[in-house]
Design a protein around this nucleic acid. Structure first.
Lengths: 207, 207
DNA sequence: GGACAAACATACCAACTGGTATGTACAGTA
DNA sequence: TACTGTACATACCAGTTGGTATGTTTGTCC
């Protein structure tokens, strides 16, 4: 029972930083192993904290999982797509994101897939709380794509009869699907092929 | 410890039927809860057998999971897509499958998703044996779509410069993605919207 | 009709896993 | 500087879960 006291390493007490560290570690574990495959003990190890500390910040595994959706995945996703929406040429920017996806979100996207889609496919039928939170993220994502396409249409780059909400939904689904294919094949080559199909489709909508 | 002996219900001993019953129960459990979320005891209960019987037919959970991919999911999928490939008008048939997907595979596709995609997204990064078996199913699926599109092109219904393998990959990815969206939203309405986008794309490839 | 293997049943366990009870250090405040 | 709530640490547990050791029944072949 020796005390050992503190090995602060950074600062001595910083609950916000600790909470953030837990969230990021949890995200990484869930991203790699899925929610059900994630062990609380592994998150504890990854943070270098103890179980007591973890359960001080989050009452249980479920609430930690929810927080990962709301505070990690949402921000990562919207960082990319708000930029797309606010760019001068959203349509070209969308195609650029598809073409150079790894530059935007990291190469692991081809081997580990889309974090949101992963969680969605695993947890939606099992946990209504997850489903609703993920659904909300998809809603915001769709909203951003919708705004981006509308901007491009108003700039005269898209056919005026284009059904923007439908295109946004299809783009979202198709992109998720392409990433999913690549993940299973463990092949960014397959992603390129699938992404090219998507780009051809988008170009066919141009004026 | 009363014996009770037999409550055969069908026939008294039928290892092939028993094995098939285990496979189908395992498929249903995995389809609903994911592989990691599936409990061997639940499969035991669902079959009305005992653990001893189950482990007589399959040495462990993993091998049962593999068998579900190779002997249940593969057959379900190819039943639909071999028909598509062998039909007189494959392109129209593909569109019909997209439009009336629930008639082909059941309405649960919109709430529980695509069984192959579910397993793929969950297990590919975790278990190389799963990954390879799922990859093989995707390969056969792609092959069927490729053959179907080639047939339609040779019949003069598709643009001759169409990149058939790329289209097949994109179709596969996009369809999986649309189903995935619907699953998360628990909404066949969203599937319809996404599927319409896909159909518009396919029609744009026509001569 | 008995021997033998396959097909199934029963009872049990060891390890894992989320969670908790309890204790300690620290930082702000009066 | 004593007090108090927050932030963490330690030790432990109860339920779950995949798996197994061992027994019993059934069909089949000679």
């Amino acid at each position: 029972m020796k005390a050992m006291s503190h090995q602060p390493s950074s600062t001595q007490r910083n609950p916000d930083r600790t909470r953030q560290a837990i969230l990021e570690a949890a995200f990484r574990e869930i991203y790699r192993h899925g929610y059900q495959g994630t062990r609380m003990d592994d998150i504890v190890k990854a943070t270098g904290l103890t179980k007591g500390a973890l359960y001080h910040h989050f009452p249980n595994k479920q609430s930690l999982g929810y927080a990962v959706v709301e505070e990690v995945i949402l921000i990562m996703l919207m960082t990319v797509w708000d930029e797309v929406k606010n760019s001068d040429n959203p349509l070209d920017r969308i195609i650029d994101v598809i073409e150079r996806l790894d530059d935007y979100v990291g190469e692991q996207i081809f081997t580990l897939g889309c974090p949101l889609n992963n969680l969605s496919q695993e947890m939606s039928p099992l946990d209504e709380g997850f489903r609703q939170r993920i659904d909300e993220v998809y809603r915001l994502w769709h909203e951003a794509i919708d705004a981006a396409l509308t901007k491009s249409r108003d700039a005269g780059q898209l056919k005026t009869d284009a059904d923007i909400p439908e295109i946004a939904t299809f783009l979202l689904g198709a992109l998720s699907g392409c990433i999913g294919l690549a993940k299973n094949a463990q092949s960014n080559q397959l992603y390129k092929q699938c992404g090219n199909g998507l780009i051809h489709y988008l170009n066919s909508l141009r004026t």
